[in-house]
Every structure is written in C-alpha cells, then in structure tokens.
C-alpha cells in the first residue's frame, strides 16, 4: 500500500471543484477588501486573504492529482506571506509615523 493511493482515498470525499470555489470566493473577498477598505491595516489583511486563497487552490489541485507539488508551493507561499507581512507592517509603521493616520488615501503626494 503506497502513499499516493492513501491520498487519493482521503480526497475522494471532497471534489476539487469545492476547494477551488472556496479559493475563488476567498480571493474575491480579498480583492474587494483591498479596493473598498481605506484602513491600511485592513488592506494588508485582505492581501493575506488573497495569498491564502492562492495557497488553497494549490492544495486542492495537489490533492486532485495526488502530487506533492501543491503542498510544496503552499510552503513557499507561507514563507512569502511571512516576508510580505513583515515588510508591509514596517511600511505601515513608517506611514503612521509620517501621517498619524491609517487612511491609505492620505498618501497621495505622487499625484501626476
């Protein structure tokens, strides 16, 4: 009995479409959050949601074709997300220092 068969048996219960649908819903929520929210912390959180949605899509696909690649990609995305959050939070702190607000629209000095 090898591992590939075990994974295939485990996922037989949940079809891939459900996983992808959930990922799409999450991604859309993230996009809406980025576009609609003005609070810069919420924008960062929405970006995190979008990243997780992408990761979920990889997991679902990996389960469907019983390949380890999806999980490897998810670990990469986790690392990316950690880096991104640290940079993002640093930016937010700087931004707050300068403007004493968390409103993203306050940063519009680069207007053409």
């Amino acid at each position: 009995m090898n591992e590939g068969i075990v994974v295939a048996e485990m996922t037989a219960d949940v079809p891939m479409q459900y996983g992808l649908l959930l990922a799409a819903v999450l991604f859309s929520l993230g996009v809406i959050g980025v576009l609609a929210r003005r609070n810069i912390i919420f924008i960062l959180m929405s970006i995190e949601i979008m990243l997780n949605a992408a990761g979920l899509a990889f997991i679902a696909a990996g389960a469907r074709w019983a390949a380890a690649d999806g999980q490897i990609m998810f670990i990469l995305i986790l690392a990316l997300a950690a880096a991104e959050v640290s940079v993002g939070l640093a930016l937010i702190l700087q931004f707050y220092h300068r403007t004493v607000t968390v409103d993203a629209d306050a940063a519009s000095e680069m207007r053409g």
Binding site: V31, L35, I43, A104, D105, S108, M110, R111, G112
Partner: peptide
C-alpha cells in the same frame, strides 16, 4: 490626458491592476 490617471492613490492603482 495621461497625467490625470496618476492620482497617487494606492487603491486606484490596485483597482487598475485588478
């Protein structure tokens, strides 16, 4: 014309990318 599109608002750019 084009300089109008450069609003300086990050959400506007994100909308453009999306």
């Amino acid at each position: 014309l084009l300089s109008r599109s450069q609003t300086g608002l990050v959400r506007w750019y994100a909308a453009g990318v999306a």
